[in-house]
Design a protein around this nucleic acid. Structure first.
Lengths: 257, 257
DNA sequence: AATCAGATTGTTGTATGATGACTTTTGAGC
DNA sequence: GCTCAAAAGTCATCATACAACAATCTGATT
């Protein structure tokens, strides 16, 4: 019995509709079609993507199941108002203010803690494999002394995805992209945060999370994620203070804590 | 009287695929087809339901989008293993739009749990008073047999406000406005949910939260909020199922040709 | 000129048949 | 008994046609 089920790289050929879903979803996320507006007709989409109407319809059904679009017979398919767009205005004006960034990070903490707990309960084999894969990718990059930021992001994203609740992933994307690059991809002081020790510490925390999720223990997963993000929050604060201290000293006064 | 026979605000006639989805979902929930087993082929389903393969495929796509089934080309459509085992059946077992609402509610759950914990730590005297005030307002309205919805909302909002993180309030507003009337302001079946017993239960849960926050115990506050919203989620699901059962019963007749 | 009923057109919903791709089963040959 | 090719079963995709519904345009009536 050659059981190929344990093969980790389950690279089945993507269905056509999935590629169409991905493409349209990307367009929507990029805001190319504002909420409330009409998508191209099924006929136009068939020409655009070069597939049959069957495939287009299947893709639209999936998007509708995710609540991204809403078909109306005789009228067309319309983009629904969505969480990300609600945060569009919210996210737009919180540019560089550090205190704002900390607050947003705190919201993200709430999201991720809960998603870790849900992931522990609901993840399927493929999703668990994706989390593991991100973990090992982090490991590999760490050994190669390459930037681990993307793998770190992928790790958190895989967990959000394992909740089987698309909004968690969307929230993470919106909050993460806008305010805080995950842990290490800080726009300033790149060397400081990328020390091996620092990233080793991250990996240790990641491992605890991964184990809890694999074990299907939601409380442990939440606790591990809380510890991880709490630590990240603390590190983030320290860096902010260090930077502020630098600016302060370079002007005139060194302000105390 | 018009023909459409529904004095409820049913908005629109359900698509054929939706009735098929509901029927299959019910069968899966009843365990008539165990996880891992194969569903009838598309051809058999067309005969069973008396609709075209187009409709059957659309229904299967929706079920697959919810993770209930998994199609394998050349083999058949199989019932997913894990999801139906846990309370996954609860997690993903209603129409597309409803599941979206549930997903948003779940995100809100994450936000509120964490905000309860933070409120327990950070609330100042005025904020604690505001929470209490909302609690007593609920009490007063309950005694007067008036709708308690606004007070309920105010209670949750006061807690979010006590985190001293404005984004928590904003998130709550955004999510609440979009998807979920807090506990009781449901657009349908208004009498059912507004029974005294129901609201008494809510108030009991509120009291536990209030006490934990007043005591400055973040873990207890989170746990109490988790219990409260978890219960709300359950109640919400039950209402959806009741509504769905109504639709299913009214549509099974049409399929019996 | 304004209004409203009806025709027209555009779009999604459903039905049908055919073909390709993939999996499983079958059976012949060794 | 084992191997492997052929066959059957099933999903994936394509193509076409018609039905149901919505928006728009047209034209007659007021």
């Amino acid at each position: 019995m050659s059981d190929t089920a344990t093969d980790l790289r389950v690279e089945r050929k993507p269905k056509l509709s999935e590629t169409v879903v991905a493409a349209i979803r990307r367009q929507l996320q990029a805001g190319e079609i504002p909420p409330g507006h009409k998508l191209p007709t099924e006929g136009q989409l068939t020409e655009t993507f070069g597939v049959s109407r069957t495939v287009i319809r299947e893709a639209l059904v999936k998007l509708a199941a995710d609540g991204l679009v809403e078909p109306r017979q005789g009228a067309g398919v319309f983009v629904t108002e969505h969480v990300s767009t609600m945060f569009g205005t919210l996210a737009a004006d919180m540019g560089a203010k550090d205190s704002v960034a900390l607050n947003v990070l705190e919201v993200r903490l709430a999201i991720e803690i809960e998603s870790a707990g849900l992931a522990a309960i609901r993840r399927n084999a493929a999703q668990e494999a994706a989390i593991q894969e991100a973990f090992f990718e982090f490991e590999r990059l760490l050994l190669d002394s390459q930037p681990t930021g993307p793998a770190d992001l992928a790790f958190h994203r895989a967990i959000a995805s394992a909740t089987n609740n698309p909004f968690y992933v969307e929230m993470l994307d919106v909050l993460g992209r806008r305010a805080i690059p995950c842990d290490v991809t800080s726009p300033w002081s790149t060397e400081l945060v990328q020390s091996d020790d620092y990233q080793r510490g991250l990996q240790r925390e990641h491992l605890v999370i991964l184990n809890a999720i694999s074990a299907g223990d939601p409380e442990a997963a939440r606790e591990a994620m809380r510890a991880h993000l709490g630590a990240s929050q603390r590190r983030y604060r320290e860096r902010l203070q260090a930077r502020q201290a630098y600016y302060a000293s370079s002007s005139t006064v060194a302000a105390g804590e």
